[in-house]
Design a protein around this nucleic acid. Structure first.
Length: 854
RNA sequence: GGGCGGUUAGCUCAGCGGUAGAGCACUCGCCUUACAAGCGAGGGGUCACUGGUUCGAACCCAGUACCGCCCA
């Protein structure tokens, strides 16, 4: 084998794109439903078509890539299916903004032309994230890329809508919904973000005896009652009477309602059924009229002086008018309270009474909860399952209609005489009927993702092979809504088969101080920036190394640099192995040294431990373990020992190097795919590590004796190095020493000890100026001059103090009758050993100190 | 208001009943022919607090304080 010319530094840019393109063109990521291999499948949580790759995606994708790469190496037929959702509101907003620059609104174009324009935008500018995924190294099956607005997926949407409709699980009703006065559409509960905002709390006198408090004073224009608790003694006598609503002159009734909290505020509440969900319920219970006083833009429509004012202008105006009439009892300002905002544009959401379509989630949510309760789907880590149950067991009906143009149009048609017909995918609406103008919530189609992407409603080989998917990987922050919805629809559509066997949750990516990343803080990390500066592997490794199940991941530039250093370390270590002729071949019959047997033993232990970590989604653990094995054991010790062996002409060392690096690179590949591919091909001459077999622990290599021997060697070397360092001996400086290795476990390691410690053979003039002992081994050193007595004394005294403390602790335990009686034998034996060791150390150190003189 | 989680080295986090760990940061010495994106050595912690269980607690239990997240 020719010695490859590898540069002394790993340059990610030189290998990433080249290898990725080859992986794709060689078809390594393609999944074959006809294969007889055991399947492993993941659907990518579809990013938004308007989105770009952020650090949270990078974490989510790195995990999925690690899982699928390992599964593929394990010989499983692996599908990782990519795609995007159409992001109704966000996409429509983007295109509307574009139109606005041309001085146009979507109404100028008309619905059909507008939708066409959105499609054009999607083709030209949408899905930037897909290109960015390639940079990260995502091993997805691009031939199966899907989009929620595709023909096939749209057919799935229409199919399930029809089924739900026919089953009575979809209905249309006039309800209070979350309304965005800017996007001009209904929102579901999960599209509303709550924050603690400063507002005002105004107490208004409605009569001599009744004062109500509100943060939305302008809604009083639409009040149709005052409610009190029926058993509230203060107000009981007023129930059934009426009061005059200030500013309007309207008389409204006082009603008794169980849901009023008598302890909150004055115990009396104003009731605005058309503008508040709780009031709506009160209104229903008491047959109150609903008075809408605002239009869809949040402008007051109620006749009178406030008509035409925006809700936020009307609020102070109403308060001022009330104050002028002496109706204001108290004003608290600022008043912190929870305010809902549109998750897309941050506009304050207005509860609004309107006619919308809903999914009756009751029965669906029940099955979604049961699937986790009975173990068909496992939530990992398990402590997060409670959150899932909390959500699923108390879910409100889901408002699915949106007053948008971009999306799946509701397949319901209305006849001239009020007929309502739901039209299935292959059906024609009756002539003369008109279609509902609303579209469906984007989540409605995303909820079908695990099976619509595989061809549902048709019976396809993909569904047969890859559904249910093996695992869903996503952040705990969307567990309760997106996951729950996929569970509901998957169970419904797929005869009780849940969409995933496991839901593996990760946390959110935070900065190095554990702070949430946000633009206003200026602490946002752009993964593409990191990929460019540190490499995709380093970016991924940084994220995975912090990824403990369900926990947030803190990252910083320093850590990314550390990961880059690690990649570089692997690069150079492999480069060294190659320069020394590392070869992959059979080790049978090789005359392995203790060092060889040690690293092979450690390797098989690490394979087992890494597998356990991967199985439990313990990416941080797997990454950390491999990092330390690679750096501390392979690089720091084995390579140094291998240098010595090679110097001695032990040619089999090349086979051990080949064996170890072949396995190590394969173990690391799911975490750092690019650098490992480049190096593995060089080491093995193989086609691609992507399809190389996953390492299997080989118990034949378990070798406790070798581990003990090399462990003792490490201990001795470290101790002597410490002495050298304390004595100010330069690392490269050769020093004469006499080794007492005979009869110790290190009897065969003299060459290694001398080489690692730069200890030369004692000459005739040898004059030991210091003596060290580690275990049974003694090392006499001639420092060629007076040793630094102060430094040596300090070193010995420190060790002595530690030994004395150790001895005292052990003695205390051994002198404790209760301990001796109740502690298990192995623990007692361990303490006894410690005590013996400590007293031996004390004796030795005291003698050495005495020998130092004063 | 309800629920969940956290509090371990300067920072971020492992450890979850038997001698306190890692990465980064820090100190000292080194261009020792794979790597200065490196090598060697080192310093640094009453494991939030108070009680309890136990021969033994960072770890189990109870309470307190503070922080974070979700829901209302």
């Amino acid at each position: 084998m020719t010695t490859p010319e590898l540069p002394t530094q790993y340059t990610p840019a030189d290998v990433e794109t080249r290898n990725y393109d080859r992986w794709v063109s060689e078809g390594h990521f393609g999944a074959d439903p006809g294969s007889s291999r055991e399947p492993y499948s993941i659907v990518l949580p579809p990013p938004n078509v308007t989105g770009v790759l952020h650090i949270g995606h990078a974490l989510d994708h790195s995990i999925q890539d690690a899982l699928t790469r390992r599964a593929r190496m394990q010989g499983r037929e692996t599908l990782w299916l990519p795609g995007m959702d159409h992001a109704g509101i966000a996409t429509q907003n983007v295109v509307e903004r574009e139109l606005a620059k041309e001085g146009l609104s979507r109404h100028d174009l008309g619905r059909e032309a507008f939708v066409e324009r959105v499609w054009r935008w999607k083709e030209e500018s949408g899905g930037r994230i897909l290109g960015q995924m390639r940079k990260l190294g995502d091993g997805v099956d691009w031939s199966r890329e899907r989009f929620t607005m595709d023909t096939g997926l749209s057919r799935a949407v229409q199919t399930i809508f029809k089924r739900l409709f026919d089953d009575g699980l979809i209905y249309r009703a006039e309800r209070i919904i979350n309304w965005c006065p800017r996007c001009l559409t209904a929102l579901s509960d999960i599209e509303v973000e709550h924050s603690e905002d400063e507002g005002e709390l105004v107490s208004i006198r409605y009569s001599d005896e009744i004062v109500v408090a509100t943060t939305r004073a302008e809604t009083m224009l639409g009040d149709t009652a005052v409610a009190v608790h029926p058993s509230d003694e203060r107000y009981a006598h007023l129930i059934g009477t009426t009061v005059e609503l200030p500013l309007t002159g309207r008389r409204i009734p006082v009603v008794g309602d169980e849901h009023v909290d008598p302890a909150f505020g004055t115990g009396a509440v104003k009731v605005t059924p058309a503008h508040d969900p709780n009031d709506f319920e009160i209104g229903r219970r008491h047959s109150l009229p609903s008075l809408t006083v605002m239009d869809e833009r949040g402008v007051i429509t109620a006749h009178g002086p406030f008509q035409g004012l925006d809700r936020f202008e009307a609020r102070p105006a109403v308060v001022a008018a009330l104050r002028a009439e002496g109706m204001i009892v108290a004003e608290k300002r600022p008043y912190l309270h929870s305010v809902g905002h549109c998750s897309r544009c941050k506009t304050v959401v207005e509860p609004r009474l309107s006619l919308q379509w809903f999914v009756n989630v009751g029965p669906l949510a029940k099955t979604a909860g049961d699937a986790v309760r009975d173990g068909r789907t496992r939530i990992h880590p398990p402590e997060l399952a409670k959150r899932y149950f909390d959500w699923v067991d108390d879910m409100h009906d889901w408002c699915i209609s949106r007053q948008l143009w971009w999306g799946h149009r509701i397949p319901v048609w209305y006849g001239p005489d009020g007929e309502v017909v739901c039209v299935g995918p292959d059906e024609e609406p009756p002539a003369g009927y008109t279609q509902d103008s609303d579209v469906l919530d984007t989540w409605f189609s995303s909820a079908l993702w695990p099976f619509s992407t595989m061809g549902w409603p048709d019976t396809t080989p993909e569904l047969a092979r890859f559904y249910p998917t093996s695992v869903l990987v996503t952040g705990y922050d969307i567990l309760f809504f997106w996951v729950a919805r996929m569970m509901m629809f998957g169970l419904y559509a797929m005869d009780g088969e849940p969409p995933f066997r496991v839901v593996a949750l990760h946390g959110m990516v935070r900065d190095q101080y554990g702070k949430k990343m946000s633009k206003s803080f200026g602490n946002v990390v752009d993964p593409l920036d990191w990929i460019e500066r540190f490499g995709a592997d380093a970016t991924r490794f940084t994220l995975l190394r912090g990824a403990n199940p369900g926990a947030d991941v803190a990252v910083s530039e320093e850590w990314a640099a550390g990961s880059r250093n690690f990649c570089n370390k692997i690069w150079n270590a492999t480069r060294f192995a190659l320069m020394n002729g590392a070869t992959v071949g059979s080790l049978d019959g090789a005359d392995l040294t203790a060092a060889d047997r040690w690293i092979l033993s450690r390797l098989q232990t690490v394979v087992t431990a890494a597998n356990e970590a991967f199985e439990e989604f313990e990416f941080a653990k797997a990454a950390d373990m491999l990092y330390h094995f690679a750096w501390d054991e392979v690089c720091d010790w084995y390579l140094e020992l291998a240098k010595i062996q090679l110097g001695e002409g032990l040619d089999h060392t090349r086979l051990v190097l080949g064996h170890v690096f072949d396995a190590l690179l394969r173990l690391l590949h799911p975490l750092v795919p690019f650098v490992t591919e480049e190096l593995w091909r060089a080491v093995t001459g193989g086609e691609s590590i992507v399809v190389a077999p996953w390492p299997v622990a080989d118990a034949r290599y378990a070798d406790a004796a070798a581990e003990a021997e090399i462990g003792a060697l490490q201990e001795l070397v470290t101790e002597v190095r410490r002495f050298r360092s304390d004595q100010g001996l330069k690392p490269g400086q050769k020093v004469a020493a006499r080794l007492g290795l005979v009869g110790t476990p290190l009897a065969g390691q003299e060459t290694a000890v001398r080489a690692l410690l730069r200890l030369t053979e004692p000459a005739e003039s040898f004059n030991a100026t210091a003596q060290l002992s580690v275990g049974d081994v003694t090392v006499e050193i001639d420092t060629a001059g007076a040793i630094d007595v102060v430094a040596e004394r300090k070193r010995l005294e420190k060790d002595l103090a530690a030994a004395r403390k150790e001895a005292a602790q052990a003695a205390a335990k051994l002198g404790n009758e209760q301990f001796m009686a109740k502690a298990p034998d192995d623990v007692v034996a361990k303490v006894r050993t410690r005590a013996d060791q400590a007293s031996a150390d004390i004796a030795r150190l005291e003698a050495q100190l005495a020998g130092l003189g004063v």
